[in-house]
Design a binder for these strands. Structure first.
Lengths: 207, 207
DNA sequence: ACCCTTCTTGACAACCCAGTACAGAACCAT
DNA sequence: ATGGTTCTGTACTGGGTTGTCAAGAAGGGT
């Protein structure tokens, strides 16, 4: 018995995310968000509680999308774990897609980790953002570590290696590729970096 | 026959860099810079041409400091190249110090690469910043590649490995450690990541 | 057809910010 | 001492930003 919303919540949050990515948090005004999403100021404040609310909800959505990637790509039987890790690494360095049906980033600005980017800009003064970024890292890290353990059980990775250390290292490579790839380097270069990292994973000694 | 400056140029730029690091570019006002440096607005505009000028000069100073590190730490004879690379990597993941006599970062906000941070925030709309960040990456990358080549000549790294690929990978690890270490992870963790990366460098096959 | 609830829109006021201009202070050379 | 030149600090202005408010539009139940 009331007027329904005329916008799609996720669509709005994706547009806002694109805007935040392109201009940064402090570089985007509420009017920018309004223009990017098509919503008026009032609707934005009513539905998302203003600029910061939009950011938090957009980051929440990003976190959910980000978590799906490693969980789906890395979970599975021990057999093939190394191959899954390989495939995930190659995809991860190219970023997290906005939607499942738009796999490649529209341009390079969409590739870097949204959470990391926001955390670097305002995390120092915004504990919520900081914590969300930390969670984003943790979900990737734990999934990778679990996959490494599976590969070790299958005899594809040196059992003496510490899975958590390797996961931290791979997470670092993924995050670093965001930065390196952000400007001035081609996607091919990122793929090459991912391949190098994968190739250097410690294989079991052949006795 | 004129009044001399009453401030130290580098000191001002360091203070501005700290401020930019802490609040981001768009998050710091000219008044913030004024407060952090002690200079009035007029002096800032006369000496540095406003906010953007301060940023560019601060980034220029950072670039000079950044370049010194790998050049001094990595250059040298083939013998010991691997060890130099090891030492450099361990230091690099902890950031570039503001001054040679203040080696450790005061707090974690000072650790991440200043150029990368600024490029991520405003590089998309500021080609100058983008280029400067690219140069910062290149100087590290080429120095690392050169050191890898030296280590290869000395028989410490697999001669079949591509030095440029390895340099890109190590650069990525260093950049990634900035992001991972920015919030929520201890310096020990960064050291551990650097050690893991170093340990995985391809050694020559023992025949 | 009517009404009530919710959404949407545009405008408004208070505030902050970048950049400029002007007046005063400091310093050095003569 | 004095003058000229440069630096320093502050006040001002125009533009942009945020958050709020009230009036209008739209839809569903009765």
């Amino acid at each position: 018995m009331a007027r329904p919303r005329s916008f799609d919540r996720d669509h709005v949050l994706h547009a806002a995310e694109r805007q935040f990515r392109a201009s940064g948090y402090n570089g985007t005004s509420v009017d920018d968000i309004s223009a990017a999403t098509g919503l008026g100021r009032g609707s934005l404040y009513a539905a998302f509680d203003g600029k910061h609310g939009v950011l938090m909800q957009a980051m929440g959505g990003y976190f959910a999308r980000l978590g799906e990637g490693p969980r789906k790509a890395l979970a599975g039987p021990d057999e093939g774990a190394l191959e899954r890790l390989h495939a995930y690494l190659l995809r991860a360095v190219h970023g997290v897609p906005l939607a499942p049906d738009v796999p490649p980033a529209p341009d390079r600005t969409g590739a870097a980790c949204f959470a990391a980017k926001m955390a670097l800009e305002i995390g120092a003064s915004d504990p919520e953002v900081q914590r969300l970024a930390h969670d984003c890292f943790a979900v990737v890290r734990t999934a990778v570590a679990e996959c490494v353990r599976a590969a070790q059980r299958n005899g594809d990775i040196d059992p003496d290696a510490d899975p958590d250390d390797l996961a931290y290292l791979l997470l670092t490579v993924i995050r670093g590729s965001d930065v390196v790839g952000a400007y001035g380097h081609s996607p091919d270069r990122l793929t090459s970096i991912a391949e190098s990292a994968f190739a250097l994973l410690p294989r079991p000694r052949q006795s």
